[in-house]
Amino acid sequence: MNERRAVVQTTACALLLAGCAGMSTTEQRTLSGAAIGTGVGAAVGAATGDWGWAAGGAAIGAAGGYLYDQQKQKEQRAYQQGVQTGKSQAQKK
């Protein structure tokens, strides 16, 4: 029975991730974090017998994915600002 449940859950996750094509990077990274967190939480839940770990893992993973995305966006803005500064300095010479 547990194998059947695992197959169903894995298939459901695969179908959900297949629908990510039209999502923003923030949505994709948040969902990916939640999926990874759910997987880790489910593994811990299987070992301990407490399936609440899956929900906790999903929440922590989603938060981690969102924070990772925000950091990447901040880095991208800083890079673009540096490029623009470099271009303006090159034009002054």
Rank of each mutant, 00 (worst) to 15 (best):
Q73F: 05
Q73K: 12
Q80T: 06
D50F: 12
R29A: 11
G37H: 06
A62D: 02
K72R: 14
A46M: 10
D69V: 02
Q70T: 08
G41V: 02
Q81E: 15
V7F: 07
A34I: 01
A43K: 05
T85W: 05
T85K: 15
A78D: 15
T11V: 14
G52L: 09
T11F: 12
K74E: 13
G86L: 01
A47Q: 10
A42R: 09
T11D: 06
K72I: 09
V40M: 09
A90Y: 15
A62I: 04
S24F: 02
G22S: 11
E75C: 00
G61V: 08
V44R: 08
W53H: 14
Q70A: 14
T48Q: 12
A47N: 05
D50T: 05
Y68I: 05
G45N: 10
G37K: 03
Q89H: 02
G61D: 09
T26Q: 05
G41H: 07
V83F: 10
K92F: 04
K92W: 11
T10H: 12
A43D: 08
N2S: 10
R29V: 00
Q84S: 12
G39Q: 01
S32Q: 05
K72W: 04
L31N: 02
Y66W: 15
A42K: 08
G56N: 13
V44C: 05
Q28G: 01
Q9R: 09
G82L: 04
T25A: 08
G65K: 01
M1G: 10
G45M: 05
Y79S: 07
A21D: 05
K93E: 14
G52Y: 04
Q73N: 13
T26N: 05
A90R: 14
A12V: 14
G41P: 03
G65R: 02
V7R: 14
L15S: 07
Q80P: 00
L67V: 13
G22C: 04
Q84N: 10
Q28P: 01
A63L: 15
G39V: 11
G45D: 03
K87Y: 10
L67N: 08
V7M: 12
Q70E: 09
C13Q: 12
A59S: 04
A35S: 15
A21Y: 04
A34R: 02
A62S: 10
A54E: 02
Q73G: 03
G39N: 02
G61P: 09
A35C: 14
A21H: 06
A62M: 09
Q9N: 12
G19N: 07
L67W: 10
T38N: 08
A59G: 07
G33K: 02
G52R: 15
Q89E: 11
T30K: 03
I60A: 14
I36N: 00
G86E: 06
V7Y: 13
Q91L: 11
Q89N: 12
L16F: 07
Q89T: 03
T11A: 15
Y66E: 08
G52C: 02
Q76E: 15
R5I: 14
V8D: 13
L31W: 01
A54L: 04
Y68D: 13
K93Q: 08
A59I: 05
